Simulated assay, not measured.
Amino acid sequence: MALVEIARVDRNLANIIVGRLESEGIPAVAFDGGASIADGSWLLIPVRVMVDDEDAELARTFLDAA
């Protein structure tokens, strides 16, 4: 089991994607969401949406359809 990146987007969209994937039964996590909150530039650092490598193809298919 290894995590793979399926998207690199802003923090708000990453959280929406994670929620949608999880509602479809695909466990997902957003990495780096708090990386730059302290200096006020959180929109400049993209957040990585990660899923298990076994779920990556299904997750990408779901994202493409959305």
Results as ranks from 00 to 15, higher is better:
V51K: 06
A56Q: 06
D32I: 02
V47C: 07
A38H: 10
D53W: 11
G25A: 01
F62H: 13
L21R: 02
R20S: 14
D53V: 15
D39W: 02
S41K: 07
A66V: 10
R20D: 12
G33D: 14
I6Y: 05
D64S: 09
A2H: 10
L58T: 11
V9C: 10
E57V: 13
A66W: 12
R60K: 13
D10L: 03
A35P: 00
S23E: 08
F31M: 10
D39H: 03
E57W: 00
R60L: 15
I45H: 07
A59H: 03
M1R: 06
D64L: 10
M50Q: 10
V18F: 00
D52I: 01
G40Q: 09
P27M: 05
I37F: 10
L13I: 11
E24S: 13
P27C: 08
L13S: 01
I6E: 07
L43I: 12
A2N: 13
V18M: 04
R8D: 11
V29T: 13
L3P: 00
W42F: 15
L3S: 03
A28W: 03
G19A: 02
D53R: 13
D64G: 09
I37R: 12
S41N: 08
F31N: 15
I37L: 15
I16M: 09
G25W: 03
R60T: 10
A65D: 13
A66S: 09
R8C: 14
E57Q: 12
V47G: 05
R8N: 12
D52T: 01
D10A: 08
E5R: 15
V49H: 07
S41P: 00
I6M: 05
S23K: 02
V51M: 04
A14P: 03
E22N: 12
A38D: 06
V9I: 15
R11A: 14
V18H: 02
A66Y: 00
L63G: 05
V47R: 01
R48D: 11
P46S: 07
A65H: 11
A28K: 00
L13T: 11
G19M: 08
A66D: 06
E22T: 11
V9K: 03
V18N: 00
R11F: 00
V18K: 10
I17V: 09
M1Y: 08
E24Q: 15
V51L: 04
G25I: 04
S41Y: 03
D10P: 07
A14Y: 07
